[in-house]
Design a binder for these strands. Structure first.
Lengths: 190, 190
DNA sequence: ACCTGAACACCGTTCAAGT
DNA sequence: ACCTGAACACCGTTCAAGT
Protein backbone atom coordinates (compact mmCIF):
# COMPACT_ATOMS: atom_id res chain seq x y z
CA UNK A 1 0.00 0.00 0.00
CA UNK A 2 1.19 3.54 -0.75
CA UNK A 3 2.38 5.92 1.94
CA UNK A 4 -0.44 7.99 3.36
CA UNK A 5 0.03 11.40 1.80
CA UNK A 6 1.17 13.95 4.35
CA UNK A 7 -1.50 16.16 5.80
CA UNK A 8 -1.10 19.96 5.82
CA UNK A 9 -0.33 19.59 9.51
CA UNK A 10 2.51 17.15 8.80
CA UNK A 11 4.00 19.53 6.26
CA UNK A 12 4.03 22.33 8.83
CA UNK A 13 5.88 20.09 11.27
CA UNK A 14 8.46 19.17 8.63
CA UNK A 15 9.06 22.82 7.78
CA UNK A 16 9.37 23.76 11.44
CA UNK A 17 11.91 21.01 11.99
CA UNK A 18 14.00 22.25 9.08
CA UNK A 19 14.00 25.80 10.46
CA UNK A 20 14.84 24.45 13.91
CA UNK A 21 17.89 22.61 12.57
CA UNK A 22 19.00 25.71 10.72
CA UNK A 23 18.96 28.14 13.62
CA UNK A 24 17.20 26.94 16.74
CA UNK A 25 13.72 27.80 18.03
CA UNK A 26 14.27 31.50 17.42
CA UNK A 27 14.62 30.68 13.74
CA UNK A 28 11.25 28.95 13.67
CA UNK A 29 8.71 31.59 12.75
CA UNK A 30 5.13 30.71 11.96
CA UNK A 31 5.26 33.08 9.03
CA UNK A 32 8.21 31.27 7.49
CA UNK A 33 6.71 27.88 8.28
CA UNK A 34 3.64 28.95 6.35
CA UNK A 35 5.67 30.32 3.47
CA UNK A 36 7.75 27.11 3.20
CA UNK A 37 4.61 25.01 2.91
CA UNK A 38 2.96 27.30 0.39
CA UNK A 39 0.23 28.71 2.57
CA UNK A 40 -0.32 32.10 4.13
CA UNK A 41 1.47 33.17 7.28
CA UNK A 42 -1.57 32.79 9.47
CA UNK A 43 -2.61 29.39 8.16
CA UNK A 44 -0.54 27.51 10.81
CA UNK A 45 -3.02 28.79 13.41
CA UNK A 46 -5.64 26.50 11.89
CA UNK A 47 -3.49 23.56 13.09
CA UNK A 48 -1.60 24.78 16.16
CA UNK A 49 -2.69 27.03 18.98
CA UNK A 50 0.63 28.87 19.10
CA UNK A 51 4.28 28.69 18.19
CA UNK A 52 4.99 26.93 21.51
CA UNK A 53 2.35 24.33 20.67
CA UNK A 54 3.89 23.71 17.24
CA UNK A 55 7.31 23.30 18.87
CA UNK A 56 5.87 20.89 21.45
CA UNK A 57 4.52 18.78 18.59
CA UNK A 58 7.92 18.81 16.91
CA UNK A 59 9.54 17.85 20.23
CA UNK A 60 7.14 14.94 20.74
CA UNK A 61 7.94 13.55 17.29
CA UNK A 62 11.66 13.94 17.81
CA UNK A 63 11.54 12.26 21.20
CA UNK A 64 9.89 9.27 19.51
CA UNK A 65 12.66 9.25 16.93
CA UNK A 66 15.29 9.42 19.66
CA UNK A 67 13.77 6.35 21.25
CA UNK A 68 13.73 4.59 17.86
CA UNK A 69 17.39 5.43 17.28
CA UNK A 70 18.38 4.24 20.74
CA UNK A 71 16.52 0.95 20.27
CA UNK A 72 18.08 0.44 16.84
CA UNK A 73 21.52 0.96 18.38
CA UNK A 74 20.82 -1.83 20.85
CA UNK A 75 19.51 -4.25 18.21
CA UNK A 76 21.71 -7.12 17.07
CA UNK A 77 23.90 -6.88 20.14
CA UNK A 78 24.58 -9.60 22.63
CA UNK A 79 22.53 -9.01 25.77
CA UNK A 80 25.45 -7.77 27.87
CA UNK A 81 26.30 -5.01 25.40
CA UNK A 82 22.79 -3.75 24.68
CA UNK A 83 22.61 -1.08 27.36
CA UNK A 84 26.02 0.35 26.52
CA UNK A 85 25.08 0.44 22.85
CA UNK A 86 21.83 2.19 23.71
CA UNK A 87 23.65 4.88 25.69
CA UNK A 88 26.10 5.45 22.86
CA UNK A 89 23.16 5.72 20.48
CA UNK A 90 21.60 8.41 22.67
CA UNK A 91 24.88 10.30 22.68
CA UNK A 92 25.21 10.11 18.91
CA UNK A 93 21.65 11.25 18.32
CA UNK A 94 22.18 14.26 20.57
CA UNK A 95 25.45 15.13 18.85
CA UNK A 96 24.05 14.88 15.33
CA UNK A 97 20.85 16.85 16.07
CA UNK A 98 21.85 19.40 18.69
CA UNK A 99 18.91 21.74 18.14
CA UNK A 100 16.34 18.95 18.31
CA UNK A 101 18.01 17.58 21.42
CA UNK A 102 17.89 20.96 23.13
CA UNK A 103 14.28 21.44 22.08
CA UNK A 104 13.15 18.07 23.41
CA UNK A 105 14.71 18.71 26.82
CA UNK A 106 14.46 22.47 26.91
CA UNK A 107 11.98 25.13 27.82
CA UNK A 108 10.60 26.18 24.48
CA UNK A 109 7.49 24.08 24.41
CA UNK A 110 4.12 24.08 26.09
CA UNK A 111 2.38 21.43 28.10
CA UNK A 112 1.03 19.25 25.36
CA UNK A 113 -0.51 15.77 25.25
CA UNK A 114 1.70 14.55 22.41
CA UNK A 115 4.79 15.49 24.37
CA UNK A 116 3.59 13.89 27.59
CA UNK A 117 2.78 10.64 25.80
CA UNK A 118 6.13 10.63 24.03
CA UNK A 119 7.91 11.10 27.36
CA UNK A 120 5.98 8.20 28.87
CA UNK A 121 6.88 5.97 25.91
CA UNK A 122 10.54 6.96 26.16
CA UNK A 123 10.64 6.11 29.84
CA UNK A 124 8.96 2.76 29.30
CA UNK A 125 11.51 1.83 26.63
CA UNK A 126 14.40 2.69 28.94
CA UNK A 127 12.98 0.80 31.89
CA UNK A 128 12.65 -2.25 29.61
CA UNK A 129 16.29 -1.98 28.55
CA UNK A 130 17.41 -1.64 32.15
CA UNK A 131 15.34 -4.60 33.31
CA UNK A 132 16.86 -6.67 30.52
CA UNK A 133 20.39 -5.63 31.52
CA UNK A 134 19.61 -6.58 35.10
CA UNK A 135 18.37 -10.01 34.06
CA UNK A 136 21.67 -10.83 32.34
CA UNK A 137 23.71 -9.45 35.21
CA UNK A 138 24.92 -6.30 33.45
CA UNK A 139 23.38 -4.09 36.14
CA UNK A 140 22.81 -4.57 39.85
CA UNK A 141 19.38 -5.64 41.02
CA UNK A 142 17.02 -3.07 42.51
CA UNK A 143 14.06 -0.97 41.44
CA UNK A 144 14.40 -0.77 37.63
CA UNK A 145 12.60 2.54 37.54
CA UNK A 146 15.10 4.08 39.89
CA UNK A 147 18.05 2.58 38.07
CA UNK A 148 16.65 3.77 34.75
CA UNK A 149 16.51 7.29 36.17
CA UNK A 150 20.19 7.04 37.03
CA UNK A 151 21.06 5.78 33.55
CA UNK A 152 19.03 8.49 31.89
CA UNK A 153 20.53 11.15 34.12
CA UNK A 154 24.04 9.96 33.47
CA UNK A 155 23.91 9.77 29.71
CA UNK A 156 21.87 12.94 29.44
CA UNK A 157 24.40 14.85 31.48
CA UNK A 158 27.28 13.63 29.34
CA UNK A 159 25.45 14.77 26.22
CA UNK A 160 24.74 18.20 27.72
CA UNK A 161 28.30 18.63 28.89
CA UNK A 162 29.62 17.76 25.48
CA UNK A 163 27.27 20.22 23.76
CA UNK A 164 28.25 23.01 26.14
CA UNK A 165 31.94 22.42 25.64
CA UNK A 166 32.56 21.28 29.22
CA UNK A 167 34.58 18.33 28.02
CA UNK A 168 37.09 20.39 26.06
CA UNK A 169 40.54 21.16 27.38
CA UNK A 170 42.43 24.10 26.10
CA UNK A 171 45.96 22.71 26.18
CA UNK A 172 45.10 19.07 26.80
CA UNK A 173 43.06 16.43 25.04
CA UNK A 174 39.28 16.68 25.48
CA UNK A 175 37.50 14.14 27.63
CA UNK A 176 35.80 11.54 25.46
CA UNK A 177 32.06 11.41 25.96
CA UNK A 178 32.09 7.81 24.75
CA UNK A 179 34.71 6.84 27.33
CA UNK A 180 32.69 8.51 30.06
CA UNK A 181 29.56 6.64 29.05
CA UNK A 182 31.39 3.31 28.92
CA UNK A 183 32.73 4.01 32.41
CA UNK A 184 29.18 3.96 33.80
CA UNK A 185 29.12 1.15 36.34
CA UNK A 186 26.47 1.93 38.93
CA UNK A 187 26.74 0.55 42.44
CA UNK A 188 23.78 -0.33 44.58
CA UNK A 189 20.97 2.17 44.21
CA UNK A 190 19.38 1.77 47.64
CA UNK B 1 35.22 55.22 51.15
CA UNK B 2 31.76 55.34 49.53
CA UNK B 3 30.62 52.87 46.92
CA UNK B 4 31.51 53.94 43.42
CA UNK B 5 28.23 55.16 41.97
CA UNK B 6 26.92 52.80 39.32
CA UNK B 7 27.64 53.74 35.74
CA UNK B 8 24.84 53.86 33.17
CA UNK B 9 26.28 50.60 31.86
CA UNK B 10 25.94 48.97 35.29
CA UNK B 11 22.33 50.08 35.53
CA UNK B 12 21.54 48.47 32.20
CA UNK B 13 23.06 45.20 33.39
CA UNK B 14 21.01 45.32 36.59
CA UNK B 15 17.81 45.91 34.66
CA UNK B 16 18.61 43.11 32.22
CA UNK B 17 19.24 40.72 35.11
CA UNK B 18 15.88 41.58 36.63
CA UNK B 19 14.09 40.93 33.36
CA UNK B 20 16.04 37.69 32.94
CA UNK B 21 14.90 36.44 36.35
CA UNK B 22 11.32 37.38 35.54
CA UNK B 23 10.99 35.52 32.28
CA UNK B 24 14.22 34.29 30.73
CA UNK B 25 16.24 35.75 27.87
CA UNK B 26 13.13 36.21 25.76
CA UNK B 27 11.85 38.59 28.38
CA UNK B 28 14.98 40.74 28.14
CA UNK B 29 14.28 43.38 25.53
CA UNK B 30 16.63 46.26 24.97
CA UNK B 31 13.65 48.57 24.81
CA UNK B 32 12.45 47.54 28.27
CA UNK B 33 15.99 47.63 29.64
CA UNK B 34 16.22 51.23 28.48
CA UNK B 35 12.82 52.09 29.90
CA UNK B 36 13.65 50.57 33.31
CA UNK B 37 16.80 52.68 33.56
CA UNK B 38 15.10 55.87 32.45
CA UNK B 39 16.70 56.25 29.04
CA UNK B 40 15.41 55.84 25.53
CA UNK B 41 15.02 52.44 23.96
CA UNK B 42 18.04 52.82 21.72
CA UNK B 43 20.39 54.13 24.40
CA UNK B 44 21.60 50.61 25.32
CA UNK B 45 23.33 50.49 21.94
CA UNK B 46 25.77 53.13 23.21
CA UNK B 47 27.02 50.49 25.69
CA UNK B 48 26.44 47.11 24.07
CA UNK B 49 26.80 45.97 20.50
CA UNK B 50 23.65 43.86 20.61
CA UNK B 51 21.23 42.06 22.85
CA UNK B 52 23.49 38.99 22.75
CA UNK B 53 26.43 41.11 23.87
CA UNK B 54 24.43 42.52 26.78
CA UNK B 55 23.42 39.00 27.80
CA UNK B 56 27.04 37.84 27.58
CA UNK B 57 27.99 40.63 29.99
CA UNK B 58 25.23 39.57 32.37
CA UNK B 59 26.42 35.96 32.09
CA UNK B 60 30.02 36.93 32.88
CA UNK B 61 28.96 38.77 36.02
CA UNK B 62 26.75 35.93 37.17
CA UNK B 63 29.46 33.36 36.58
CA UNK B 64 31.68 35.41 38.89
CA UNK B 65 28.95 35.44 41.49
CA UNK B 66 28.49 31.70 41.16
CA UNK B 67 32.19 31.25 41.89
CA UNK B 68 31.91 33.58 44.90
CA UNK B 69 28.93 31.63 46.25
CA UNK B 70 30.69 28.31 45.79
CA UNK B 71 33.81 29.56 47.57
CA UNK B 72 31.73 30.98 50.42
CA UNK B 73 30.04 27.59 50.81
CA UNK B 74 33.46 25.97 51.23
CA UNK B 75 34.69 28.54 53.76
CA UNK B 76 34.86 27.60 57.43
CA UNK B 77 34.80 23.91 56.66
CA UNK B 78 37.37 21.36 57.66
CA UNK B 79 39.55 20.51 54.68
CA UNK B 80 37.94 17.13 54.02
CA UNK B 81 34.47 18.64 53.69
CA UNK B 82 35.32 21.64 51.56
CA UNK B 83 34.80 20.08 48.15
CA UNK B 84 31.46 18.54 49.07
CA UNK B 85 30.32 21.87 50.50
CA UNK B 86 31.39 23.61 47.31
CA UNK B 87 29.40 21.20 45.17
CA UNK B 88 26.32 21.68 47.31
CA UNK B 89 26.79 25.45 47.00
CA UNK B 90 26.85 25.14 43.21
CA UNK B 91 23.66 23.12 43.33
CA UNK B 92 21.90 25.63 45.55
CA UNK B 93 22.95 28.57 43.40
CA UNK B 94 21.62 26.85 40.28
CA UNK B 95 18.34 26.01 42.00
CA UNK B 96 17.76 29.51 43.36
CA UNK B 97 18.62 31.31 40.13
CA UNK B 98 17.47 28.98 37.36
CA UNK B 99 17.36 31.59 34.61
CA UNK B 100 20.82 32.92 35.37
CA UNK B 101 22.16 29.39 35.52
CA UNK B 102 20.68 28.54 32.14
CA UNK B 103 22.01 31.79 30.69
CA UNK B 104 25.56 31.23 31.95
CA UNK B 105 25.73 27.75 30.44
CA UNK B 106 23.35 28.22 27.56
CA UNK B 107 23.39 29.48 24.03
CA UNK B 108 22.02 32.97 24.32
CA UNK B 109 25.26 34.90 24.49
CA UNK B 110 27.98 35.91 22.07
CA UNK B 111 31.68 35.34 22.19
CA UNK B 112 32.72 38.04 24.56
CA UNK B 113 35.94 38.84 26.46
CA UNK B 114 34.20 39.32 29.80
CA UNK B 115 32.64 35.89 29.52
CA UNK B 116 35.87 34.17 28.49
CA UNK B 117 37.73 35.72 31.42
CA UNK B 118 35.00 34.78 33.86
CA UNK B 119 35.12 31.18 32.61
CA UNK B 120 38.89 31.11 33.08
CA UNK B 121 38.57 32.43 36.64
CA UNK B 122 35.87 29.90 37.46
CA UNK B 123 38.00 27.06 36.22
CA UNK B 124 41.04 28.23 38.17
CA UNK B 125 38.99 28.40 41.39
CA UNK B 126 37.72 24.85 40.88
CA UNK B 127 41.16 23.45 40.07
CA UNK B 128 42.41 25.03 43.31
CA UNK B 129 39.63 23.36 45.31
CA UNK B 130 40.34 20.01 43.71
CA UNK B 131 44.09 20.28 44.35
CA UNK B 132 43.37 21.07 47.97
CA UNK B 133 41.04 18.06 48.29
CA UNK B 134 43.72 15.87 46.76
CA UNK B 135 46.33 17.13 49.23
CA UNK B 136 44.19 16.07 52.21
CA UNK B 137 43.33 12.71 50.65
CA UNK B 138 39.72 13.51 49.82
CA UNK B 139 40.29 12.82 46.13
CA UNK B 140 42.58 10.43 44.28
CA UNK B 141 45.84 11.79 42.89
CA UNK B 142 46.13 12.58 39.22
CA UNK B 143 45.99 15.58 36.91
CA UNK B 144 43.95 18.16 38.90
CA UNK B 145 42.71 19.80 35.73
CA UNK B 146 41.29 16.53 34.50
CA UNK B 147 39.77 15.72 37.86
CA UNK B 148 38.30 19.20 38.10
CA UNK B 149 36.62 18.63 34.73
CA UNK B 150 35.03 15.47 36.12
CA UNK B 151 33.82 17.28 39.23
CA UNK B 152 32.41 20.14 37.21
CA UNK B 153 30.74 17.74 34.83
CA UNK B 154 29.21 15.74 37.63
CA UNK B 155 27.72 18.57 39.65
CA UNK B 156 26.62 20.43 36.54
CA UNK B 157 24.79 17.41 35.29
CA UNK B 158 22.95 16.95 38.56
CA UNK B 159 21.86 20.58 38.47
CA UNK B 160 20.64 20.27 34.88
CA UNK B 161 18.81 17.06 35.57
CA UNK B 162 17.07 18.59 38.55
CA UNK B 163 16.02 21.67 36.57
CA UNK B 164 14.67 19.55 33.74
CA UNK B 165 12.67 17.37 36.09
CA UNK B 166 14.68 14.24 35.33
CA UNK B 167 14.94 13.44 39.04
CA UNK B 168 11.19 13.36 39.63
CA UNK B 169 9.21 10.18 39.84
CA UNK B 170 5.50 10.15 39.24
CA UNK B 171 4.49 7.51 41.73
CA UNK B 172 7.73 7.26 43.68
CA UNK B 173 9.91 9.63 45.66
CA UNK B 174 12.13 11.94 43.64
CA UNK B 175 15.86 11.35 43.60
CA UNK B 176 17.65 13.79 45.89
CA UNK B 177 20.16 15.98 44.07
CA UNK B 178 22.03 16.46 47.33
CA UNK B 179 22.31 12.71 47.89
CA UNK B 180 23.59 12.26 44.35
CA UNK B 181 26.22 14.95 44.85
CA UNK B 182 27.34 13.44 48.12
CA UNK B 183 27.66 10.06 46.39
CA UNK B 184 30.39 11.43 44.12
CA UNK B 185 33.46 9.33 44.79
CA UNK B 186 35.60 9.31 41.68
CA UNK B 187 37.91 6.43 40.97
CA UNK B 188 41.15 6.76 39.08
CA UNK B 189 40.85 9.19 36.21
CA UNK B 190 43.22 7.61 33.66
C1' DA C 1 -12.11 21.45 7.03
C1' DC C 2 -9.02 24.78 5.58
C1' DC C 3 -7.33 29.21 4.07
C1' DT C 4 -6.70 34.58 3.35
C1' DG C 5 -5.71 39.56 4.32
C1' DA C 6 -5.71 43.31 7.19
C1' DA C 7 -4.63 44.77 11.50
C1' DC C 8 -2.49 45.26 16.40
C1' DA C 9 1.08 45.43 19.53
C1' DC C 10 5.33 44.29 19.73
C1' DC C 11 10.71 43.21 18.54
C1' DG C 12 16.27 44.26 17.24
C1' DT C 13 18.87 47.38 14.87
C1' DT C 14 20.58 51.55 12.20
C1' DC C 15 21.33 56.24 11.59
C1' DA C 16 21.35 61.16 11.49
C1' DA C 17 21.27 64.45 14.84
C1' DG C 18 21.83 66.46 19.19
C1' DT C 19 24.32 67.97 24.36
C1' DA D 1 30.91 60.46 26.51
C1' DC D 2 26.19 59.82 26.24
C1' DC D 3 21.51 60.28 24.53
C1' DT D 4 17.20 60.98 21.28
C1' DG D 5 13.65 60.13 17.58
C1' DA D 6 12.38 58.41 13.37
C1' DA D 7 12.68 54.67 10.56
C1' DC D 8 13.20 49.71 8.62
C1' DA D 9 12.39 45.05 8.50
C1' DC D 10 10.77 41.91 11.10
C1' DC D 11 7.80 39.06 14.92
C1' DG D 12 3.23 36.37 17.29
C1' DT D 13 -1.45 36.66 17.37
C1' DT D 14 -6.46 37.90 16.43
C1' DC D 15 -10.34 38.33 13.65
C1' DA D 16 -13.72 38.93 10.11
C1' DA D 17 -14.36 36.87 5.92
C1' DG D 18 -14.09 33.60 2.43
C1' DT D 19 -14.22 28.34 -0.27
Amino acid sequence: MPEASPTPRDLLVVAATRLLDDGGPQNVTLREVGRLTGVSRTAPYRHFASKADLLATVAAGELDRLVDAVERSADDRDPAARLDAAMLGYLRWARERPERFRLVFGHWTEENDDLRQAAARANRALVDLVGEAQSVGGLPTGDPWRLAAAVRAFVHVIAVLEQNGHLLGRDRAPLSAEDLVRSFRPGATG
